[in-house]
Design a protein around this nucleic acid. Structure first.
Lengths: 256, 256
DNA sequence: TCAAAAGTGTTGACATTACACCCATGT
DNA sequence: ACATGGGTGTAATGTCAACACTTTTGA
């Protein structure tokens, strides 16, 4: 009355845990649009060449034996983007027993990773990147950005995983200054406003937005003595987390 | 080059997954104090009777084969409190490889659950209960409430799991109306204020607190025609989630 | 009669909203 | 000359913070 669930070796010769994985939802912002980085998944029939599966998935991987969960997420992120030291946050764990039971996904798993458990629990991480930093196709020709409201057909339960990541991102963006992670280090107020409008799906008055932002000590003008506040070459700002932490207002505006 | 990780049978004859568990941090509020429900863990030497381990742990359990993660959490909650349909929320997943490596915990595991994997990932759930509803010692003599700032010695990494649950609870209590889950259905404004002061660790002006609360449509007076607003038998209120969802203000007070 | 808890109102400071015009530049 | 995008100010409204006294009852 025992079932075996084994630990297997993958290509790079490392052992992995066959029922625990991490998935990274990598968000980027360009063309005033919030985007997600996805990888193409293609399976062809070995004899006929017929395309059996053609869709996209998140960046994910099983946790290696002896590897901390967070380290697995960092590893996946590094492998797919080449980036390190970027915003990465665990946001939810997906553990429905039927999350991999779609026939297409079963075919994929049985073909490529036959030792995978029937019940894989996947820990979702969300990452915010300045998408300019990711060199397109650095060895990952099948990796592409998609606007979050124009997602392609997705494998596994990755649609739900992305939606939940979006919820988490929006929830947090309303309440904490994390938008900067999606922008270049130096940004204009218009870029910042576009980010909030796009991600939160709201419209903001430009004058009021500036008024609000400019009175925040943690958003700092990079004074450019050359420019005499000429339009067309707008002022740039940086965000200082240090200043933010120090000057956070302690106003008791809790929401009952 | 394969390691086996098996699925074992526990007392009630159900198979469980030996490397995935859930832990429930059950919060209650009484005597104006936020409390956590913990279970005593005792291990005696079978020969000498010497006490080898005596501390407390959270309510937790391995996920059963074929069981959804959320169902596992509900099961644990039901087993330990007899309660169903109460606030239960997944908040974080703990997956450091060394989380069970303390010698005491290894002794416990090897004695009682020898088939447990060396690397167990545990999904943390937090639950808010009206502690009056839990009958003390309903078959669980070793279960006790502890104030969150007077915790006893804790097994495994349960101290960290509780601290993270506290963080999550406080974060959410600042931003959403979830405090009611910790109070009786009918509550007084003083009770509500005490809750906020105790959980968030703040002091509030009674007049301003009432002013703020009374203008919220989702906090409804249970008018008691008998009472002429006499002190000592204060007015009671209920919380309506329905009204809350309908009247949520759409004010754009995001925090950059 | 005293201590303890419930109840109430005003003011100043600050934040949010709504709204319209000018300027410099590149085409 | 015109379209584009950057930049600015004011008035009305709403919310938050600070603050003191009265009432009733149970001990």
């Amino acid at each position: 009355m025992q079932r075996k669930c084994k630990i297997y070796i993958i290509k790079n010769m490392e052992k992995y845990i066959n029922n625990i994985s991490v998935d990274c939802v990598i968000f980027g912002f360009n063309s005033n649009t919030l985007k997600v980085l996805l990888t193409e998944r293609i399976l062809k029939d070995k004899k006929t060449g017929e395309i059996l599966i053609s869709d996209y998935t998140l960046q994910g991987h099983h946790v290696l034996v002896g590897e901390n969960l967070d380290d697995a997420a960092h590893r996946v992120l590094k492998e797919k983007t080449g980036l390190d030291n970027i915003y990465l946050e665990q946001y939810y764990t997906f553990g429905d027993r039927s999350r991999l039971s779609n026939p297409k996904d079963q075919l994929w798993i049985r073909t490529n990773f036959p030792e995978t458990s029937n019940h894989v629990v996947s820990v979702g991480y969300l990452s915010l990147v300045n998408s300019a930093l990711i060199k397109p196709d650095r060895g990952h020709k099948f990796t592409k950005w998609f606007p979050v409201d124009e997602l392609p057909s997705l494998g596994f339960d990755h649609y739900q995983i992305i939606q939940k990541a979006l919820d988490a991102l929006r929830y947090k963006l309303w309440r904490e200054p994390i938008g900067f992670e999606l922008l270049p280090e130096k940004f204009t107020l218009t870029q910042l406003q576009n980010l909030y409008e796009a991600v939160l799906g709201i419209k903001l008055d430009r004058r009021n937005f500036r008024k609000k932002v400019l009175q925040m000590k943690h958003i700092i003008l990079i004074s450019d003595p050359q420019k005499n506040t000429s339009p067309r070459s707008p002022q740039k700002y940086i965000f200082s987390r240090e200043v933010y932490e120090k000057t956070k207002k302690s106003r008791l505006d809790f929401n009952i």
